[in-house]
Design a protein around this nucleic acid. Structure first.
Ligand SMILES: NC(=O)c1ccc[n+]([C@@H]2O[C@H](COP(=O)([O-])OP(=O)(O)OC[C@H]3O[C@@H](n4cnc5c(N)ncnc54)[C@H](O)[C@@H]3O)[C@@H](O)[C@H]2O)c1
Ligand SMILES: NC(=O)c1ccc[n+]([C@@H]2O[C@H](COP(=O)([O-])OP(=O)(O)OC[C@H]3O[C@@H](n4cnc5c(N)ncnc54)[C@H](O)[C@@H]3O)[C@@H](O)[C@H]2O)c1
Lengths: 223, 223
DNA sequence: GCAACTTTGTGCCCGCGTTCACAAACGCTT
DNA sequence: AAGCGTTTGTGAACGCGGGCACAAAGTTGC
C-alpha cells in the first residue's frame, strides 16, 4: 500500500474538463479574501451541483475537511498539480490574422504556466512584425523554434485550407497537443491530441434550441 | 398516424452537437462535385464512426437510400432544417476589443442564416467606428436595436468583470441565446441558453493529457 | 425476374457519468 | 469528554449515449 496522499490515477475526462472551471472559481473566491469554502459555495460559483464537485475532487484525493470545507489555496494547488499547471507550457500560435492576433494578445493566456513562446505566419510581408512583444516568424523556422523553446502545444489559427499542412508541420516538429480554430477535422497520429474550438458549431446549437423555444405548440405529437 | 415524412422529435443533445460537423463535411464533398455519399465516407470526413453517423441521422428521419447512400444536397437541407438554419438569425456582438473585432470580421459567421446585425461597446471613443461595415453602437441603444432588428442571439466578448451586466442587459432586451467568451459562469433565467467558449479550459485539458504522455513509467500503481 | 451484393436503419447491450443517500469525520459548544 | 450540527467522501442506483449485430431495403448483373 501507499502512504502517498495523492493517488490521482484515472481521472475521468468529464472531470478533467471541469477542473479548470473549479480553478477559476477558486481564484474568484481567493480574490475576495476568502480562505475556506464549502463544496456548496464553490459548486455554485462553478455552475455545477455540489455532489458533482465533491465526486470530481474525490478523484484527485481527499483535500477537504469534514464539517468545514476546502482550504482555497491548498485546493487550487492540488488541482493545478493534477492538471499539470505547475510546470511551464510554451505555446506556439500559427496564423497571425484577426483571430491569431487576438489570441496572442490575450492576457488570460498567461495563467497557469502557459505563455506564447512563438508566433508564425506564412505571409512574408508579416515576418518580423511584433505581436504581443514577439516577432512573427516565418514557417521555415518552425521546427527549429519548436525544439529550441521546448514548445509542446500548438494553436492553429489559419484558414481551413492551410490547417492540415500547418498541423503536419507542427506534428513533424514534435508538437503533440493542438488547439484548432479552423473549421475542419484534422488527421493526426494516435499520440497527438487535438481539441477544436468552432464558433459556427456553437451558433448552430444555439439556433437549434432557439428554434425549439419559438414553436412549443406542436410538441406532443406529429402535426 | 402521420404521413409527415419528418418526425424529428427529441433529438439527443450529443447528436445536435455533431450535426453542424456533418453539415460542414457535406459542404466539403459538395464542393468536390460529389452528389451522393455513403455513411462511411461522410463519417470519415466528419471524424466519427459510420454507425454513429447513421444513428444520429436516424433521429431526423430516414433520408438515405439503402444500397446507395445519401443525396448530398438533400441531406444538407434536412440537417439545416433540423438545426433551424433555414431561417435568418441576426446576431449581436457586445465588446469590440481584440476578440470582438475578430469575431465581427469572421466570414464563417455568415454561414447558415447567421449575420452580425449589430455590434456594441461601452467605450464612447469607439462609438460610430466601423467594424465589418457596421457602426459600433453605444450600450444605451442595445434594447432598441435588439427589438428593431429581431436579434435573438447575443455574443459576449467583454472582460469578465463586465460580462454579467452585459448579459443582464441582453436578457432584459429579450435575447434568450448567448455565446459567452468571458471566463466566468453567467447567471441567467431558466429559459435562456448559454454556451461558453473558453480558451484557458481547452489549454488546461491539453496540458493534462500532455503531462500524462511525458510520465508513462508510473502508470500501474502508486509510486 | 431472380440472386447476389451493398448500404441503411435500428434493437440491444454495455460502459460511463451523474445523482442520490448515507456513513464517516471534523469542529464547536457545554 | 461527550453530544450535536455540519460537511465531506463514496457506494449504489439510474439514465444516456455509443457500438455491435442484424434485418430491411434497394441496386446491379445476368
Ligand atoms: N476570426 C474569428 O473570429 C474566427 C472565429 C472562429 C474561427 N476562426 C477560424 O480561425 C482561422 C483564422 O481566422 P482569421 O479570421 O484570423 O483569418 P485571417 O484570414 O484573418 O488570418 C489567417 C492568417 O493565416 C495565415 N496563413 C494562411 N496560410 C498559412 C499557412 N499555410 N501557414 C501559416 N500561416 C498561414 C495568413 O497569412 C493569415 O495571416 C480560420 O480558419 C477561421 O475559420 C476565426
Ligand atoms: N482575445 C482572445 O483571444 C480571447 C480568447 C478567449 C477569451 N477571451 C475573452 O474575451 C473577452 C474579450 O477579450 P479581448 O481580448 O477582446 O478584450 P479587450 O479588452 O480587447 O476588449 C474588451 C472590450 O469590451 C469593452 N467593454 C468593457 N466593458 C463593457 C461593457 N460593460 N459593455 C460593453 N462593452 C464593454 C471594452 O471597451 C473593450 O473594447 C475577455 O473576457 C477575454 O477573457 C479573449
Amino acid at each position: 500500500m501507499s502512504a502517498d496522499p495523492a493517488i490521482r490515477r484515472d481521472i475521468p475526462d468529464a472531470t478533467v474538463a471541469r477542473l479548470p472551471e473549479y480553478l477559476r472559481a477558486l481564484s474568484d473566491v481567493a480574490d475576495r479574501g476568502i480562505s475556506s469554502v464549502s463544496s456548496e459555495e464553490l459548486a455554485q460559483a462553478a455552475g455545477v451541483r455540489s455532489t458533482q464537485l465533491r465526486k470530481d475532487l474525490s478523484h484527485l484525493g481527499s483535500y477537504g475537511i469534514r464539517g468545514v470545507g476546502y482550504e482555497v489555496e491548498h485546493l487550487a494547488l492540488e488541482i493545478s498539480r493534477a492538471l499539470g499547471l505547475t510546470q511551464d507550457w510554451p505555446v506556439a500560435i500559427v496564423g497571425m490574422g484577426n483571430l491569431g492576433r487576438a489570441l496572442a494578445a490575450y492576457s488570460g493566456f498567461a495563467t497557469g504556466g502557459f505563455h506564447v513562446a512563438a508566433v508564425f505566419d506564412e505571409d512574408a510581408a508579416l515576418a518580423g512584425a511584433l505581436v504581443a512583444d514577439l516577432p512573427i516568424s516565418p514557417m521555415t523556422d518552425l521546427a527549429l523554434l519548436v525544439r529550441e523553446r521546448g514548445i509542446t502545444i500548438g494553436v492553429i489559427a489559419t484558414p481551413a485550407a492551410s490547417a492540415q499542412s500547418v498541423c503536419n508541420a507542427l506534428v513533424e516538429a514534435g508538437v503533440r497537443s493542438l488547439l484548432n480554430f479552423a473549421p475542419l477535422v484534422l488527421v493526426v497520429p494516435d499520440d497527438v491530441d487535438v481539441r477544436r474550438v468552432d464558433l459556427s458549431t456553437e451558433l448552430h446549437v444555439l439556433a437549434f434550441h432557439e428554434q425549439r423555444k419559438s414553436l412549443p405548440p406542436e410538441l406532443g405529437v406529429a402535426r
